[in-house]
Simulated scan of single mutants.
Amino acid sequence: MSPRKSASETAATRTRIIERALALASTDGLEGVTIGRLAADLGMSKAGVIGHFGTKEALQLAALDAAVQAFRLRVPARVVGARPGAERLALLFGEWIDYMLDGDAPGGCFITSVASEFDGRPGPVRDAVLAALSGWSAYVEGEIRAAVEAGDLPGETDIDQLAFELNGVALAADQAIQLHHDPAAPSRARRAIGRLLAPGQVPRAGSEGAPS
């Protein structure tokens, strides 16, 4: 076996392990993914599974990183060509809602789920989740600024507050879809997002929130 082929096969096996870990974590939680379960599902030894990562925590971090990359390709990457402004913001959150409904994400938004699982558990996994969500918030705030610059939103828009409210709608939608199995949740969320992005409704700097 050539070294190149060996490296290729090692990378392929590592990918298989991560993909299976993500599938299990989407329903059982990231902490619920055990080396024994992965080994049994993949027809490998426990030593063979852990040997690709070193520790269970390293495996969790690798799975989380893969989920973040998949989210970026599934949500932000799909709105790159849209005109900067309120239209792109609405499309962005619409893609996030569609992602929650995807058959590839049976447990809803994976990153949101892991955030709830690890929010009270200090450590590298929590830190990685926090970094991913902080990056998302910064990205949304940048899109809101672009909407202000495009003239779609008022110049005095409270960017932090609007980002908070938009993310809040998406998180509420994820819970309604996954926990309550509410078929109306996606359309309700889209209406709420549209209302938040209406120029006369966005929260203004110096106010306590959106005008009534």
Rank of each mutant, 00 (worst) to 15 (best):
A70H: 12
I50G: 01
P76G: 06
E87I: 09
E141Q: 15
L92D: 08
D41K: 13
P186F: 01
M100H: 07
G94I: 02
L91T: 08
G168L: 09
T15N: 08
G103N: 04
F71Q: 08
A39S: 14
G43N: 12
T157E: 11
T55E: 07
V79S: 08
A7C: 02
V33D: 04
G85Q: 11
P124W: 05
L64A: 06
R14F: 07
R204V: 02
A21H: 04
E57K: 04
L24I: 15
R20W: 07
A58P: 00
D119P: 00
V202E: 09
G43Q: 12
F53V: 05
L42P: 01
A172F: 01
I35D: 10
A7I: 02
I35N: 14
R20A: 11
D174R: 03
A67R: 13
T10G: 03
A176C: 05
R20E: 13
R14C: 03
R83N: 02
V169N: 02
P211D: 10
I144C: 05
E31P: 00
P76R: 10
A184W: 00
I111K: 04
G135S: 09
S187P: 00
V75Q: 03
C109Q: 04
P106G: 07
R126N: 13
G43W: 07
S187V: 09
A67H: 09
K46G: 07
L59N: 05
G151M: 06
R121S: 05
E31V: 12
Q161E: 13
A105L: 07
A7H: 13
D28A: 15
S26R: 08
I159M: 05
G120S: 11
L101M: 14
A198L: 06
L171C: 01
R204K: 03
A150C: 12
G94N: 12
A185T: 01
S116E: 15
G29I: 10
D102R: 10
D119T: 14
V202L: 05
D98E: 14
G54F: 04
E117H: 10
A63R: 06
A25L: 04
L171I: 01
P199M: 08
V75F: 08
A47R: 11
V202N: 07
F53I: 04
A138T: 08
I50A: 04
G200P: 05
A170P: 00
L30C: 05
G81I: 01
G107A: 10
I50D: 00
G43P: 07
L153H: 06
A25F: 03
A173H: 01
A11Q: 13
L64Y: 05
L61M: 11
G120K: 05
A39V: 06
Q175H: 07
L73G: 15
S2N: 13
L162E: 14
K56M: 02
I177P: 02
F118I: 03
R88W: 12
A205W: 13
I193C: 10
E9Q: 15
R121T: 15
V80C: 02
L91P: 01
G107L: 06
R126A: 10
A192H: 03
R188V: 08
T13D: 01
R4T: 13
R88D: 10
L166K: 00
H52N: 12
T15A: 15
A12Q: 15
Q161R: 14
I50T: 12
R145V: 05
V68N: 09
D104Q: 13
F164H: 06
L92T: 08
A131L: 10
A47P: 00
A11I: 04
P203I: 01
A131Y: 06
L89W: 06
H181L: 02
G168A: 09
M1V: 11
